[in-house]
Amino acid sequence: MAAGGDHGSPDSYRSPLASRYASPEMCFVFSDRYKFRTWRQLWLWLAEAEQTLGLPITDEQIQEMKSNLENIDFKMAAEEEKRLRHDVMAHVHTFGHCCPKAAGIIHLGATSCYVGDNTDLIILRNALDLLLPKLARVISRLADFAKERASLPTLGFTHFQPAQLTTVGKRCCLWIQDLCMDLQNLKRVRDDLRFRGVKGTTGTQASFLQLFEGDDHKVEQLDKMVTEKAGFKRAFIITGQTYTRKVDIEVLSVLASLGASVHKICTDIRLLANLKEMEEPFEKQQIGSSAMPYKRNPMRSERCCSLARHLMTLVMDPLQTASVQWFERTLDDSANRRICLAEAFLTADTILNTLQNISEGLVVYPKVIERRIRQELPFMATENIIMAMVKAGGSRQDCHEKIRVLSQQAASVVKQEGGDNDLIERIQVDAYFSPIHSQLDHLLDPSSFTGRASQQVQRFLEEEVYPLLKPYESVMKVKAELCL
C-alpha cells in the first residue's frame, strides 16, 4: 500500500493539533497551500530580480507567473513527485505547466533550498508574528487579574506546605514575570531571523556568478533584492546548502521555554482548584465526569500541561538535527523538520489560546482563602504575639514557653481530632496574655502579614508589564474561544 493518505478522510490519521486544537490561522501558515504558494512567490521574486539585473526574462513571463501564483494543481504535483521522487522539481514542473512561456526560467540558477529553506524562514517569521500578540493578550488578562487582587491576602506555599502570606495578585505576578520573559525572547528570536537568500547549491553562489558572467556586484544585488522582497532586513552571508540548523534550535528553545512557563502556571491553577481557592472557567453544560456528576475538573489547565510537556520535548529534535548536518548538509534534517517545526508552533498556539481562555474567566473564592488563612495564621502570628507581650512588660522566655504549650495543644486538636485551630481562643482565655487581649485582632490582621506584596504588584505592572504590552494595544480586544 502506498504511503500517505487522504487526510480529510475519517479513515486516515490526522494530527489532533490540526484537527482538534490549533487555530485556523496557525494551521494555514503550515498548510501545503501556504507552503507551495510561497515557493511560487519566491520563484517570481527571483525572476523579477534577475530581470532587473539584466537576464533575458520578459515582462510577459513575469506576468504569467504572477497570474498563476494561486493556480496550484495539487493532484498534478503529487503525481509528479511520485514520478520524480523530488518535491521541488515536482512543483517546478507543475508551475511550468500553467506558465508555459515562463517554464524555462522558473528556478533559474537556484537549488531546492532556495524555495525550501527560504519558505521555512518566512513561515517561522509569520508563525512567530501570530504567537506574539496571543502571548501579549494572556499577559494582559493576567495583569488585569493581578491588579484587581493585588491586596487580597492568601496563604503562600513553599514545598506545598503553608508559608508566609502573600497576595493573590502577587502570586499571579510570578506567572506574568515568566511570560514577559517569554514574550521578550519570542520577539528577540523573531527579529534575529535572517533570510537564507540566493546562495546556490553549497552556499557559494557559483551558479549565479556564472549567470551574471562573473559580476560579483550583481550577485550581491540579486541576494539583497530577493531578501528585501521577502520582507527581511538581512540575509546570511555564510550558508551551506541550507541555512544553519542552529536557527531551528533557537526558535524551538524559546517555544519550549514558553511551554515550561505555561505548565507551571496551569499546575498552580490545578492545585488551587483542589484547594477550592480558584477555578478555571466551567461552562453551564460542561460535564466533569461521566460517573461523578459533582466533579469540576480543571480540564483546560490539564490540557495545557499535557501539550506543554510535548512542546518542551520537541527542542531535542533540532538539537540532534543540527549535530548531524555533515559538511554542507545531509538530508537527516528533512523529514524531522517537516514534523517538529509545525508541531512546535501548533502546540504553542494551542496552549496560548487555551491559557487566554482560562485567564479571561478565572474565578476566585475569597471566603475559602480566608478560612485557610484562619487555619494557619495563628501559628504564624506567634512571633508577633511574643513581641507584643514583651512590649507590655512580659518575659520573652516565659511567653515563648506559654505559646509553645498552647500551640501544641491547638495542633493536637487540628491533627488528632480534625478540629479547627483554636490557638487564639486559648490565648484569649489565658490570664497571662490579658495585657494584649485587646491587640489580638490587630495582630491577626492578614494584611499585616503580606509585606509589600501589593506595592510590588503595582510597581511591576507599571514599570515592566504595561510598557512591554504597549506595541500590542491594537490587538488586545480579541477574545479566545474554545470549541473543545
Score class of each variant (00 low, 15 high):
Phe157Glu: 03
Leu440Tyr: 12
Leu124Tyr: 03
Pro162Gly: 01
Asp333Leu: 11
Gln41Ala: 06
Ala3Gly: 13
Phe460Ser: 04
Glu464Val: 06
Gly451Ile: 11
Leu108Pro: 12
Asp445Thr: 13
Glu50Val: 02
Arg33Ile: 04
Ile265Cys: 05
Thr201Gln: 07
His159Gly: 01
Cys180Trp: 02
Gly451Trp: 03
Asp120Tyr: 00
Leu406Gln: 08
His159Ala: 01
Leu352Asn: 00
Ala348His: 01
Asp317Ser: 08
Arg329Met: 01
Phe195Cys: 09
Val115Asn: 09
Tyr34Arg: 04
Ser323Met: 04
Asn71Asp: 07
Phe95Glu: 12
Gln285Thr: 11
Asp248Gly: 13
Gly156Trp: 03
Tyr432Trp: 13
Glu360Met: 15
Asp332Pro: 01
Leu132Gly: 06
Pro16Ala: 01
Leu272Trp: 09
Met26Lys: 10
Lys75Glu: 05
Arg37Trp: 04
Val189Ala: 09
Gln439Asn: 10
Asn384Pro: 09
His263Asp: 00
Leu461Arg: 11
His159Trp: 00
Thr347Glu: 02
Gln458Leu: 07
Arg329Ser: 09
Thr244Tyr: 13
Thr450Gly: 08
Met476Arg: 12
Lys170Ile: 02
Leu272Ser: 15
Leu311Cys: 08
Tyr365Arg: 15
His159Ser: 02
Arg125Lys: 05
Ser112Lys: 07
Thr313Cys: 14
Thr111Ile: 14
Met316Trp: 03
Val414Arg: 11
Lys66Asn: 03
Ala77Ser: 03
Ala335Ser: 08
Gly418Ser: 14
Leu346Cys: 02
Arg171Ile: 01
Arg372His: 06
Val465Leu: 00
Phe449Ile: 01
Phe449Asn: 02
Asp11Lys: 14
Gln456Trp: 05
Val413Cys: 04
Trp39His: 12
Glu220Thr: 07
Leu130Gly: 04
Ser19Gln: 13
Glu148Gln: 06
Arg374Trp: 09
Ser290Gln: 09
Gly96Ser: 01
Asp32Val: 09
Leu311Asp: 11
Gln397Pro: 11
Leu307Lys: 05
Cys266Met: 09
Phe36Arg: 07
Lys199Pro: 02
Val315Met: 06
Ser257Asp: 02
Ala411Lys: 10
Leu53Tyr: 04
Arg426Pro: 06
Trp45Cys: 01
Phe208Ala: 08
Ile123Thr: 11
Ser301Asp: 02
Gln458Asp: 15
Glu79Leu: 03
Leu272Pro: 12
Thr313Tyr: 14
Asp333Ser: 09
